[in-house]
Amino acid sequence: MKMTKIYEGAHQWVMFGRDENKPDNIIDSNQYIVRTANKCLLLEPGGTELFAPMMAAVLHHAPVDQITDLFASHQDPDVISSLGLWDQALSNAKLHAPALWEGYIRNFGCESIEYVPIPDNGETIKIESVELQIIPAHYLHSPCNFHVYDPQAKILMCGSVGSAFEAANAPVFVERFDVHVEKMRAYHQRMMPSNQAKRAWIDRVRNLDIDILAPQHGRMFKGDDVKRFLDWFDSLQVGTGV
C-alpha cells in the first residue's frame, strides 16, 4: 500500500492507495487519514478486501487505540464494507456517515462503533483542535453523499467526484490535466446522474480555498488543476453515460 503525506502542519493528511497486492478484479481506492496529536480520522476506510493492508499501513502513523473516528461519504462497499472488521478492532470509535444510509451501512457490521448520522445539510466534525466541514455532495454519485473540507490544510476530500481508475504504479497527483480528462470522462457521465446537483456542488466548492482535491479513486489534483477540474466538470453534461 502506497502512503503519501499530502499535508504536514499542526496535523497531517496521509493518502493511502495503489495497493500492489490487491486482487485484479477489485477496484483501486484511495483512503485518507487526518492525524492529530492523539487522534486519527480515517476517511473512506475501504472494502473488506483492503482492510488488512490498509490497517497495516495506518499502523505506521497511529496506534490502534488512537483511531477514534471514521468517515464514509456514502454507502458503497468500496467505501465502507470493511466496517465490520474495524468494528471488532476499534474499542472506542465513531463512524460519521450519512443519516440516510444508517440502516444500510449497519449491514456491514456496526456493534461497538458509534454511528454518528450526518444530517442532509452537513455539519462540522472536530478532531481535537481540527475542525472539518462536512460538505453536502448529494447525487454525486450517491443520493446522499458528503465530502470533507479541511480549511486549515486546504484539502477537499471529494469522494467519487474527480475519480478515475489507474494502474497500481500510477502517480498520485495529476501531471497532465488534458491527458487525465479522458480517464475521468466516461465515469463522470455514467456515475453522476444530475447536472443540477453537479452545479450546486460546483457553486459551493468554488467558494472554498482549495489546494488539493482528493478523490476516492485515481489521482489527486493540486494547484491550478483544482480550478481546471472544476471548469471541466462544470462544462461536462452528466447523466448521459448510457
Binding site: 497495516a56 499502523l59 505506521h60 502513523h61 497511529a62 496506534p63 490502534v64 487505540d65
Partner: peptide, 9 residues
Amino acid sequence: ARYADSMQE
C-alpha cells in the same frame, strides 16, 4: 511499522 505492537490487543 511504528505502532505494529498496538495490534496485539
